[in-house]
Design a protein around this nucleic acid. Structure first.
Lengths: 225, 225
DNA sequence: ATTATTTTGTGATATGCATCACATTTATTA
DNA sequence: TAATAAATGTGATGCATATCACAAAATAAT
């Protein structure tokens, strides 16, 4: 039995403006699924007929680069996944994999398009989301290519702390190899930098458990190198 | 005196679907401008109240990175500029600079939004453009960070040849330092690689004049290293 | 034209980091 | 609980490429 979308906890500002008719369409034409940690939610190269709404959990957007897998970014619910594919060539250009257990809604592209066309607010919000992502991409790419490892590692730790976990102490949601793919470096370097930061008293590392002890230092490292 | 937008040569598939009313609004609320090579069309950090339509010419999208200027990509008319800013926070997150002399239309954001709301085809095309850009960004970023200089230089040369000039011989539209900022390397390395390619008979370099002699080799270098 | 400025060409040196190699610890599975 | 695999820790080495330092052309400015 499907949930009633109108009463979904994860109504965004935009979706809350939808008409009853649109909510009806959504409620009838979506598919709720759960994924376990490590499961593939969206598979690069596959034909896609769905938009995915991530209701709960953490996921990584990643793609096959020329030499190795690249993690573009971690995303946190609630958010849409696969929007660019929906409006692009319908072939997924990237994969999305569950990093924690997740709850997900699959929405058929045609239903999504219909709702989009009927709701100004909604389509505007999608435009905003896509735009923000593009700008974010530019900045992220410039940082990754120009900064060196310590700077990028500092950024990732700050992002985890501020954007994803909203806490100074958290558990790393991905392995050091994955961190390396996110930060464009090698697994060994990730390890070294993490332990350097620990020895310098900037963070406390205990297995996957991280505590940020000196945020000011991290910000400095992020800026300098 | 303003041009009639309906008869604009650079009507895209999407704009050609606009209603007469929308065309009227466009014709009355746009501003045609020319820029000379090197002029700033959009300035990072400035508040923006316009969408820019590049009618003629070549421009570079670039932004201030943590250590130096970064060229995100070269764009060729006809195309929109500044869309992400329009739907984002209205502060330009990047600059756009004329690489050749350009013709440009400034369209007030509010007029643009109105037209967008009234024309399904049009807004859909904008969604598609934004989506393609995002996917393109992912790929580009993965390539730049994973490949090494020869590979990236090969890519840029192929892109110039295929996407921008549609010819095997062309004049480099930017200096070697700018190429370096586009390819994420140093000016010296750009120079060396260019001359290496020349010595290997892959391209012929004569000042800023480039002729691609062996496209197959370039593609191989792009893939391997 | 002459000077000044920017762009290009090229060697020599330095360095950040990938890669390799292997030990150790922590998870997973049988 | 043993066995197997995956993830982590750390030194030693090599290499791609940044940086430095000038020289030479090519452009722009006076």
């Amino acid at each position: 039995m499907q949930n009633d979308c109108k009463n979904c906890v994860f109504n965004t500002r935009a979706t809350s403006m939808l008409s009853d008719k649109s909510f009806g369409q959504l409620s009838e034409n979506h598919l709720e699924l759960r994924f376990s940690k490590g499961d593939t939610i969206i598979k690069q190269g596959m034909f896609s007929t769905n938009v995915v709404f991530l209701r709960k959990g953490l996921a990584k957007i990643h793609l096959t680069g020329p030499y190795h897998e690249q993690i573009v970014r971690l995303v946190k619910a609630p958010t849409y996944l696969g929007l660019p594919t929906t409006f692009g060539d319908k072939i997924n250009q990237y994969s999305v994999t569950a990093v924690t257990d997740t709850d997900v809604c699959y929405i058929d592209v045609r239903v999504f398009q219909t709702i989009l066309n009927e709701n100004r607010e909604f389509s505007n919000d999608i435009l905003i989301e896509l735009s923000k992502n593009e700008l974010e991409s530019f900045r992220r790419c410039a940082n990754r290519t120009q900064k060196q490892i310590r700077g990028n590692m500092a950024d990732v730790l700050l992002e985890f702390s501020e954007k994803i976990f909203q806490s100074d102490s958290f558990t790393l949601p991905i392995s050091q190899s994955e961190l390396a793919n996110l930060v464009d470096t090698s697994r060994e370097s990730v390890n070294r930098v993490l332990n350097e930061f620990d020895k310098d008293g900037i963070i406390k590392v205990n297995g996957k458990q991280i505590e940020i002890l000196n945020k000011k230092s991290l910000n400095l490292i992020s800026q300098n190198g």
